[in-house]
Simulated assay, not measured.
Amino acid sequence: MASRIGSRLVRGGVLVVGGLMIARVATDTHGSWEALAVRLVAPALFLFALWATTSVFAAVDRGRDFDPAMTRAMSWTGGGLLLGAWASWLFEPMMLHLIGNGFLEARGVTLNYTVQNLTLAAVGAVLILLARRGRALRGELEAFV
């Protein structure tokens, strides 16, 4: 029950934060809609990962450890974190540079190497691997029963 309330709070928070994020990025981006769209990719992927965690909470609340719904949610969460980190690290700086110079030259791009991006990518990869291992262990346990 507490996890269900927690997952509803997280989903509501994701909607509120998503709206605030779009408003902030829209006011910070001076100029083109292309730059606005590029700046929204990484945060949208991170919010998707946060939304997917609510399914993990729901599976834990029901006592269904490593069932297909939980492992799928873990994979989606990990994928969102991994892709969001990639978008923040590589995609956003490269696309903003290309938009800024009219898609004429890709030289001079400064990639966003930060500890935060590397950590989020690593956590995303670990979640994907844990979900795969959980599916395999669940299959082995069902074979015994």
Rank of each mutant, 00 (worst) to 15 (best):
M1F: 06
M1G: 10
M1W: 06
A2I: 13
A2H: 12
R4G: 07
I5Q: 13
G6V: 06
G6L: 15
S7P: 00
R8C: 01
L9F: 07
V10H: 00
R11H: 05
G12T: 02
G12F: 02
G13A: 02
V14A: 05
V14I: 11
L15T: 02
G18S: 08
G19C: 02
L20A: 11
M21L: 14
M21T: 15
I22F: 09
I22Y: 07
A23D: 11
A23V: 09
R24N: 11
V25R: 14
D28M: 07
T29E: 12
T29M: 04
H30C: 00
H30K: 13
H30L: 05
G31N: 08
G31M: 01
G31Y: 04
S32P: 01
S32F: 01
S32K: 02
E34G: 12
E34S: 09
L36P: 08
A37W: 12
V38P: 08
L40Q: 06
L40F: 08
L40P: 07
V41S: 03
V41D: 12
A42S: 14
A42D: 07
P43I: 03
A44G: 13
L47I: 03
L47F: 08
F48N: 03
L50D: 01
L50K: 00
L50Q: 02
L50E: 01
T54V: 06
S55E: 15
V56Q: 07
F57A: 14
D61M: 00
R62E: 15
F66H: 11
D67F: 01
D67P: 02
D67W: 04
T71W: 09
R72V: 05
R72K: 11
S75V: 01
W76A: 05
W76E: 14
T77G: 00
G80S: 04
L81H: 00
L82M: 14
L82C: 10
L83F: 13
G84E: 06
A85Y: 03
A85T: 06
A85W: 05
A85G: 15
A85R: 01
A87W: 01
S88T: 00
E92Q: 15
E92P: 04
E92H: 00
M95W: 14
M95H: 08
L96H: 08
L96K: 09
H97K: 07
H97D: 11
H97A: 06
G100K: 10
N101Q: 06
G102L: 04
F103H: 10
A106S: 13
G108D: 07
V109C: 07
V109L: 09
T110R: 15
L111S: 03
Y113A: 03
Y113E: 12
T114D: 11
N117M: 05
T119V: 09
T119F: 06
A122G: 10
V123Q: 04
G124S: 06
A125K: 02
A125T: 11
V126M: 12
V126T: 15
L127M: 13
I128R: 10
I128V: 15
I128Y: 08
I128S: 02
L129D: 11
A131D: 12
G134E: 13
G134P: 09
G134S: 08
R135M: 11
A136V: 08
A136R: 15
L137K: 13
G139M: 09
L141Y: 14
L141A: 11
E142N: 09
E142T: 10
E142W: 02
A143C: 02
A143S: 13
A143I: 08
V145G: 12
